[in-house]
Design a protein around this nucleic acid. Sequence first.
DNA 1: GTGATCTGTCATGGATTTGTCATAAACTAT
DNA 2: ATAGTTTATGACAAATCCATGACAGATCAC
Lengths: 234, 234
Amino acid sequence: MSTQNKILIVDDEAAIRTMLRCALEPAGFTVIDLADCTQAWRLLQAKNAVDLLLLDWMLPDQSGIEFAKRLRAQLATADLPIIMLTAKAEERNKLKGLEEARVDDYITKPFSIRELIARINTVLRRGPVQNHEGRIQFAALALNLDHKTLLINNQEINITPKLYAILYFFLTHRDKVYTRQQLLDNLAADSFYDERTIDRQIKRLRDLLEPSGMADYLITVRGHGYQFTSKKQC
Amino acid sequence: MSTQNKILIVDDEAAIRTMLRCALEPAGFTVIDLADCTQAWRLLQAKNAVDLLLLDWMLPDQSGIEFAKRLRAQLATADLPIIMLTAKAEERNKLKGLEEARVDDYITKPFSIRELIARINTVLRRGPVQNHEGRIQFAALALNLDHKTLLINNQEINITPKLYAILYFFLTHRDKVYTRQQLLDNLAADSFYDERTIDRQIKRLRDLLEPSGMADYLITVRGHGYQFTSKKQC
DNA sequence: GTGATCTGTCATGGATTTGTCATAAACTAT
DNA sequence: ATAGTTTATGACAAATCCATGACAGATCAC
């Protein structure tokens, strides 16, 4: 890679910042680290200041979520890819906040360096998940994050809350197989549901996408789970 | 998985070793503990001697970091997962060393047993030879862990779940003969299957690999079991 | 509350995968 | 070479997995 991707780390713990710097620099990233949102905000006003933001959940002057939302709200940073660092303790209902703040991915501590780098590369490769109109777009599909609606070929289609959540998850986590349990974990706070429930919801989602031909992207991987591909299968 | 993961603890304080042993054995790990690097080095020369190394920072004969680097430098242990135990006191330039030594994770004392176990499992789960693309590669073969597919010469091929598991096992445990029973144990939780079942699956796997010539790496060791070699037999 | 909609559970059937068995082939030791 | 053992392989049965319809419980709007 000729031009290194610049990553901004915002975390109040010096040890974590150092650790991340030491992990990311050898992987070919340029790293800037700051301890609070105020400084970060200033830095980010510059055009193309950084390529990606690694943002801790807990920060001294403002919660990471709040900061992310602020960034999304101003045009200059509306499309900045953000990966959130969360502690294990954080519960599912907080994950809801992640969607609202439109972060691109999140990773729970403790995480492996390898995994972090993989996710950073994924996010950088695919670009921000949502555009500045507050949409996630993929081929003929779009989710309007503000209205929680589904658009197929710009036609608004009714979608139920659960199906919206599933589709949101798939659109933001493409090209990887997820087990039913993983899907349940990501969709419900207290997931003691039957795994077959996922089958049923997948079917419903497919019925919804069928008329547009987009159902073909949602594939079953026998013995493993389901996957939303970026490339239509033949 | 019914075969227990083997963990080597290297720490000079007997009290810590005992504590760790008492913590890890009930969690289903097999524990070996040693007091210094010299002994550990000897032990680790054996292929697949252990699955993970828990290494103290301060050791009598050599610093943990130095030892880790030495392990990384020789092929047999280059991929051995290592978790470092560090005292809270030293923070900064210490962490630098962790990346240099390509340590997989580190944990600062005092730590909770639960956290330690969680981290061990995290490190173990992500597997040994997976490269940054989420693949396990060997010669013309690769497993795409994200898609759960087999790639032969970069051509994605569908593979059934059991065969995937068997191939995954072989690719991550090369150059060692496994008995049919060991293979069964690694592939099914409650394996009361006939041992001949393995023969059958081996045949199926060979049929799959045959066209690419990769079947030659999967050899029968008469009277013992099967082995996936790194060097093609002649 | 009541009705409408949404979501989870269950049962069924079909397709695929996997295990078992029988026999052929290969190998080993004498 | 021959008997005895071990492995390969084809045929088939059993088990597994998934799609799907029916339905009931949960949730939401009014």
